[in-house]
């Protein structure tokens, strides 16, 4: 028979042994944390796959174009006194603006294109020298109706993560000139109206740009935007990226509705409005010292002013910013570029 002290000792020894065994089984905290970090990394990759990679076709939109007559606009070559000789590289109605600008530019007319419904004047512009050099391509686009300024989705499908090369999207749509769009396919927020078809209007903190069938273009802050009003006015296109660059009278905005990262120097794509029937499609190359450093958001806004725009809107930039003409890439996208979700184009 064991005494009370012996029993207590035995119990205590067993307890200690049990604790030691448990301790031996347990991993040190730093190892557990490393495992947690690895699991988190794995889950982020799974998230990225579903959010960023896996293509998903979404339901088609609703046609919103009514039967109202569509306004038509004169093309420059049809006017009795064209104010812009086609052979000069100066921007249409904009030579004064260039001369007013403090930046000295080297301007070359790269391509011109005309058909019955549209005219395109594509110029290459270089500002500055050395590491401050900026190179951009700007297309003055004239259309007889706003319907000639078209958009297209990659692979002809509306959805998430559906991407393609700009040249291939342009080819599929018989586009003579194409500019990368707002990359709507990378998220499920914002407003998407394309070629008079309404796809979505989800809450966004970004500015929104709308091209109406009457040829006018307007940018909206998220608070101003009213989808019912926009649909009623016969919207032809709507993009969500931003920010809006000008105040609607041709002045650079004092503040821009975007993150500090977007405000920094990057390659850029932008669309501008001069008057109904006259639009500016622009791509600024960047991230290549000596060729083009890119521009910050204020510099981009100033370029759009210099190009004669009264409304201008920043589209997706960085590697996305690209332009194609007649089946060939016009600019030099940063890092070789990337596949994109949509284009703005003029059909050939």
């Amino acid at each position: 028979m064991k005494s009370g002290i012996e029993e207590e000792y035995e119990q205590s020894t067993q307890k200690n042994l049990h604790i030691t065994e448990e301790k031996r089984k347990r991993l040190p905290i730093w190892q557990i944390l490393i495992i947690d970090v690895l699991v988190a990394g794995l889950l982020i990759n799974v998230f990225a796959f579903f959010h960023h990679v896996l293509p998903r076709t979404l339901d088609g939109g609703v046609n919103i174009i009514g039967k109202d007559p569509i306004p038509t606009f004169e093309l420059p070559s049809n006017t009795a006194h064209p104010s812009r000789p086609v052979s000069t590289p100066e921007p249409y109605e904009g030579s004064k603006r260039y001369s007013e600008s403090p930046h000295k530019r080297q301007v070359d007319l790269v391509e011109t294109y005309k058909n019955e419904t549209s005219e395109v004047y594509l110029r290459k512009v270089v500002i500055g020298n050395g590491k401050d050099r900026i190179t951009y391509y700007v297309a003055d686009v004239f259309v007889s109706t706003a319907m000639s300024l078209k958009t297209a989705f990659a692979r002809g499908k509306y959805g998430m993560n559906i991407k393609d090369d700009i040249v291939d999207i342009a080819y599929d749509n018989d586009a003579v000139l194409a500019l990368s769009g707002d990359y709507y396919t990378n998220n499920d927020i914002g407003v998407v109206i394309r070629n008079g078809v309404y796809y979505r209007s989800e809450h966004t903190e970004n500015d929104i740009c709308v091209l109406y069938l009457d040829g006018t273009m307007k940018t909206y802050s998220p608070d101003e935007f009213d989808i019912d009003e926009v649909l009623e006015r016969n919207a032809w296109q709507a993009w969500t990226f931003g920010p809006s660059l000008l105040d609607g009278k041709g002045n650079v905005l004092k503040t821009f509705n975007c993150s500090s990262y977007i405000k920094q120097t990057h390659p850029r794509a932008a669309i501008g409005y001069v008057r109904p029937g006259h639009y500016v499609l622009l791509v600024v190359d960047g991230r290549e010292e000596g060729y083009s450093k890119g521009v910050d958001i204020r510099e981009l806004a100033q370029i759009m002013v210099d190009e004669g725009c009264i409304v201008a809107y920043n589209l997706d930039g960085g590697k996305t910013a690209c332009m194609s003409y007649d089946g060939e890439l016009v600019n030099k996208p940063a890092g070789g570029g990337r596949e994109i979700g949509d284009i703005i184009y003029i059909a050939g």
């Binding site: 998230f47 959010h51 998220n187 499920d188 970004n206 975007c258 993150s259 990262y261 977007i262």
Partner: peptide, 13 residues
């Protein structure tokens, strides 16, 4: 912060 346009925080997942 770097790319708010991608809606990393507000999407369904």
């Amino acid at each position: 912060i770097f790319n708010p346009g991608m809606n990393f925080l507000g999407n369904k997942i």
